Simulated scan of single mutants.
Amino acid sequence: MDDLPETLARGDGIAGELALRRRGGQDGVYELIVNGTFLMDTAETSTERLLADVLLDRHDSPRRVLVGGLGFGFTVDTLLGDARVDRVDVVELEPLLVDWLRDGMVPAADVVMNDPRVHIEVADIRDALDDAAPELYDGILLDTDNGPGFLVRDENARVYEPPALRAAADALAVGGVLALWSAAPSDRLAVALADSVGDVTELVRTVTRQGREVDYHIYLAQRRPR
């Protein structure tokens, strides 16, 4: 019976029905479910943290960072652990998720939601990229869906296409890093990223989920001079 999930909150979100669940009691695992489909949890967060690490490792002065997709806050939390980071702008589509984390429903997110360096906007990341000032960011980290090959929300396909990637490149200072999380490999994304930003690196992280090994991918490029 302990493995049965407890639904902590449920509501109609932008992408459909959103549910926050917990397994294993107060100190257990928190899960986000969209339209009955698993999206993320707090059990395995290494690749969310890796998304931040690729920027911190590759940029000498990552002062201002844009994160597309709040999740449970692990990418942002990793950024905040680096004293070089002065500001993190977070764009999250689902207002329910922001409200739940602000209300303390996921304890691990408390530090992120209360840090004065964090500025959260409820919006579509594509609109935020289109509206961003040129060369504003040292890093842009996108974890808005499960990647181009396994979408929870069909509209998010455009996040991985050349117009959005070019908008992200324009918002990056020269030498800035654009990194995207993906649940599956995508040669098409790698090509579009190379054309729009710069030379591409693909990182593969193998994690264990429910007794089986799964490969997750991060695609990153550093903005070249125009």
Rank of each mutant, 00 (worst) to 15 (best):
M1Q: 10
D2L: 12
R10V: 11
D12L: 13
A15N: 08
L20I: 10
R22V: 10
R23C: 11
G25A: 10
G25T: 08
D27V: 07
D27M: 11
G28R: 04
V29M: 09
E31Y: 10
I33N: 08
N35C: 02
T37K: 11
L39D: 09
M40W: 04
M40F: 06
D41I: 05
T42E: 01
A43Y: 07
A43T: 00
A43F: 07
A43V: 00
E44A: 09
E44V: 15
L50E: 07
L50S: 10
L51V: 06
L56P: 05
D57F: 13
H59A: 13
H59K: 11
S61V: 11
P62W: 04
R64T: 15
G69Q: 01
L70W: 02
F72A: 07
G73P: 03
T75A: 09
D77T: 00
T78C: 11
L80R: 12
D82L: 10
D86Y: 04
R87H: 14
R87P: 01
V90Y: 04
E92V: 03
P95N: 03
L96P: 01
V98I: 11
D99T: 14
L101I: 08
R102E: 14
M105T: 00
V106L: 07
A109E: 03
D110Q: 12
V111W: 12
M113N: 04
D115H: 13
D115I: 06
H119M: 08
E121M: 09
D124P: 07
D127E: 14
A133L: 13
A133S: 14
I140A: 02
L142K: 05
L142Q: 07
L142M: 15
T144M: 15
G149N: 15
L151Q: 02
V152C: 12
V152T: 15
D154H: 09
E155M: 06
A157C: 02
R158W: 08
E161I: 00
P162C: 05
A164F: 02
A164D: 06
L165A: 04
D170G: 12
A171G: 09
V177A: 06
L180H: 03
W181D: 01
W181E: 01
P185N: 06
D187Y: 02
L189V: 05
L189K: 00
L189M: 05
A190F: 00
A194R: 14
D195H: 00
V197A: 03
T201Q: 12
E202M: 13
V207E: 14
Q210I: 09
R212F: 12
V214G: 01
D215M: 08
Y216W: 13
H217M: 06
I218W: 00
I218G: 01
Y219I: 05
Y219G: 03
Q222S: 15
R223Y: 11
R223M: 08
P225E: 09
P225D: 09
R226S: 12
